[in-house]
């Protein structure tokens, strides 16, 4: 029972990250190497906003994380990514690598690399069959993740903005010619992706801890996205589940030190069998 709970929550954490990676990839053909850093900094912001408000209400930290996502998303897109269209592909990747390392330094400078665990004040409550305990935090994680994916689905499927979003991802020029402000849509993609990452960071910080080392969850998320297929949201969930299982089993059965390398070993396996991922489209392989 214990292991099922762990895997489910790990899946949620990675699925949120992978979803962000997929959205960014679809919107602008960028692969974001700073996603883990964004997630953890989002978690830190949540924590600090909570401290500032004296830990009385959940709204304050939530608002903090949302504001962080909006500012970061707009800034990254408008100040950096927007200028990179037409440059060689590696430029965008390396810029995100640069962003990642700057965020890491922010953790060192602003939070002094403190190891923090986010505690929203709900204690473990439910005893499961088999002796495992499940905290409200865990349940909230699952509910929030499901809600996020459901919201995303409804947004892309039924709202006009969502449709415009999908159109922009396919053909930005035509979208622009039909009156869509492409810059707005692509900034929005960044904001949504960072929002998901922050949520993931908060979940991770609630269950484990936030520190400069925990940014490696970004790599797990990236692997999840690749395993599932870089252009598929469904794949993000499936990939997250696979990575979570593999990681959990390695930590349990083999060696905890290996757990960081696990996603990549998995990746190498998937790449040699089905390089475009489980749900991805084959053509994408040549695009980046």
């Amino acid at each position: 029972m214990e292991f099922a709970a762990t895997i489910v929550i790990l899946t949620c954490t990675y699925a949120l990250l992978a979803a962000g990676t997929v959205i960014l990839y679809k919107a602008g053909r960028v692969v974001n190497f700073a996603h883990g850093e964004l997630a953890i900094v989002g978690g830190y912001v949540f924590y600090s906003a909570g401290l500032m408000s004296g830990g009385t209400s959940l709204w304050f930290p939530v608002a903090g994380a949302v504001v962080f996502s909006i500012i970061m998303g707009m800034f990254i897109y408008m100040a950096m990514m927007r200028r990179l269209v037409g440059e060689p592909f590696y430029v965008a990747i390396l810029v995100t690598v640069g962003i990642g390392i700057v965020l890491k330094s922010a953790i060192l400078v602003i939070w002094r690399a403190e190891r923090l665990t986010i505690d929203v004040g709900v204690t473990p409550a439910i005893r499961m069959a088999g002796g495992a305990t499940l905290s409200y935090m865990d349940i909230a994680s699952v509910v929030l993740t499901v809600a996020f994916f459901a919201g995303l689905y409804l947004f892309f499927r039924f709202t006009r903005l969502g449709v415009q979003f999908r159109g922009t991802a396919e053909n930005a020029l035509l979208a622009s010619q039909r009156g869509v402000d492409v810059n707005f849509v692509l900034s929005l993609a960044w904001v949504i992706a960072i929002l998901a990452a922050s949520l993931s960071g908060v979940l991770y910080g609630g269950r484990a801890f936030l520190s400069t080392e925990s940014v490696t969850i970004g790599l797990a998320g990236l692997t999840a996205a690749l395993v599932g297929g870089l252009d598929s949201l469904r794949g993000a969930v499936a990939g997250a589940f696979i990575v979570a299982c593999a990681q959990y089993l390695t930590v349990r059965l083999v060696d905890p030190v290996l757990s960081e390398a696990v996603p990549f070993l998995l990746l190498v396996i998937v790449m040699s069998i089905r390089p475009w991922g489980l749900f991805g489209t084959q053509e994408e392989l040549d695009r980046v």
Partner: peptide, 8 residues
């Protein structure tokens, strides 16, 4: 060319 969104 590319006058409609093929994936929509």
């Amino acid at each position: 060319r590319d006058k409609v969104f093929g994936t929509l």
